[in-house]
Computed example of a mutant assay.
Amino acid sequence: MTFHGFDTRAIHAGQEADTETGAVAVPIYQVSTYRQDGVGGLRGGYEYSRTGNPTRSALEECLASLEQGARGLAFASGMAAEDTLVRTVARPGAHVVIPSDAYGGTYRLFARVLSSWGVEFDAVALSDPEAVRAAIRPQTVAVWVETPTNPLLNIADISALAEITHAAGALLVVDNTFASPYLQRPLTLGADVVVHSTTKYLGGHSDVVGGALVVAEPELGERLAFHQNTMGAVPGPFDAWLTLRGIKTLGARMDRHCANAERIVAELVEHPGVSQVLYPGLAEHPGHGVAARQMRGFGGMVSFRLVGGAEAALAVCDRARLFTLAESLGGVESLIEHPGRMTHASAAGSPLEVPDDLVRLSVGIEDVQDQLADLRQALPG
């Protein structure tokens, strides 16, 4: 049966009732190898769990359905997914365009790992399509997009970048972690590959680490699957099961994340100790129009800058109580962090260094009045 609604697919895609027992939840196939009916006689196509596992297969099918792609592949972490993708599509001498405010871990991967392998990169403001066009070289194999970006929440026009990238014969890769497939589906806008840290909104409960790739074309999916198996950075069956369980409530959670974030943003913009609020849902945000066009909602991530500089930003992080001081994002609980000294410390001293007066919130799904009360007591004055 074909399911059309997002929430229906999140609950049912790849998750039919078990044929042996009728169990409505996908079983955790905690197994490393599988009995064969004679040499090469595989039951269900499974031989060894690095190559394929039924629980992981269910997750991969569900991810492909949610992103409306040809194939999904699950990994042990978002960084494992990114590394596998680049090593599949690039060779020494290749070039990649990345965001000028990319996630610190992505920047570290390109600057300190892939560069030693011979992959070159340029960091460009992806909100400016003409700057992207100018940065593309004959050796460019991919344009790597985050939208919204982490942590400055800039917006890139996926459709416009797809046209520019494809005209150059390169792939458009979109990290969709911040938006989740509930709010944004880049493949339908022309992207070739979607990247996720499934640790975040897809898992949703801060209890599992994982990553994923979803592709528009089966041929690229086959190449990636070969490298997924060969390089081996796959999730275990219990991690796949936890992620799959989290996905079932993704739509309901994202609605609450967005609603709470909008209430918090409305208060932050009026606070005298806050110099700037970064949130694509604000009409004055430079990417608001594009975000409104390509996103279902504006997300649960909020960044803001403090009048008192780094000292004030660190003090807010220290005084917060309901907002837990921690890295990561996208869980049901609210988190607060200082990107310059935490998630983006690897970009310090580089052109991608983030402002030291910046605080990033991952707005959870607690009662918004409790969230607001915590922020009021944590903010200066």
Rank of each mutant, 00 (worst) to 15 (best):
H4I: 13
G5L: 14
G5W: 09
R9C: 10
A10C: 10
H12K: 09
D18H: 06
E20W: 07
G22S: 09
I28F: 00
V31W: 04
S32V: 15
S32A: 15
S32Q: 15
R35E: 09
D37L: 15
L42T: 15
R43W: 09
G44F: 13
Y46V: 12
Y48Q: 14
N53P: 10
P54R: 08
R56Q: 14
A58W: 01
L63M: 13
Q68S: 10
R71P: 00
A76Y: 02
G78I: 03
G78M: 06
T84M: 06
V86I: 15
V86H: 02
R87T: 09
V89M: 07
P92A: 08
V96P: 00
I98L: 13
D101T: 08
A102Y: 03
G104N: 02
L109Q: 01
F110L: 08
L114K: 00
S115E: 12
S115T: 12
S115R: 15
S116Y: 06
W117L: 10
D122Y: 00
D122W: 02
L126C: 05
P129S: 07
E130F: 03
E130N: 14
V132N: 01
A134S: 10
A134I: 11
A135N: 05
I136H: 04
I136C: 04
P138A: 12
Q139F: 01
T140M: 04
V145N: 05
P148T: 07
L161Y: 02
L161M: 09
E163H: 13
I164S: 03
A168K: 07
A168S: 08
A170H: 01
L171K: 04
L172S: 05
R185P: 01
P186E: 06
G190K: 08
A191H: 14
V193P: 01
V194H: 02
H196K: 08
H196W: 09
T199G: 05
K200F: 13
K200Q: 12
K200W: 11
L202Q: 07
V209G: 03
E222Q: 08
R223E: 14
A225I: 09
F226L: 14
H227N: 15
A233I: 13
V234P: 00
V234T: 10
V234L: 12
P237R: 04
P237S: 09
F238V: 11
A240R: 02
W241F: 09
T249K: 09
G251H: 03
A252K: 11
R253V: 14
N260E: 12
A261R: 01
R263E: 15
A266H: 11
L268K: 04
V269T: 11
V269C: 04
P272C: 07
S275Y: 07
V277W: 00
V277H: 05
Y279H: 12
P280I: 05
G281I: 03
A283E: 15
V290D: 05
A292M: 14
R296A: 06
G300Q: 11
V302C: 08
S303L: 06
R305M: 11
G308D: 07
A310W: 00
E311R: 12
L314H: 03
L322T: 11
F323T: 05
T324S: 09
S328A: 14
V332G: 05
S334G: 06
S334K: 08
I336A: 05
E337W: 01
P339C: 10
M342D: 02
A347G: 11
A348R: 15
A348S: 14
E353S: 06
E353W: 06
V363G: 01
D367Q: 11
D367E: 12
Q369D: 15
L372W: 08
D374H: 05
Q377G: 13
L379Q: 08
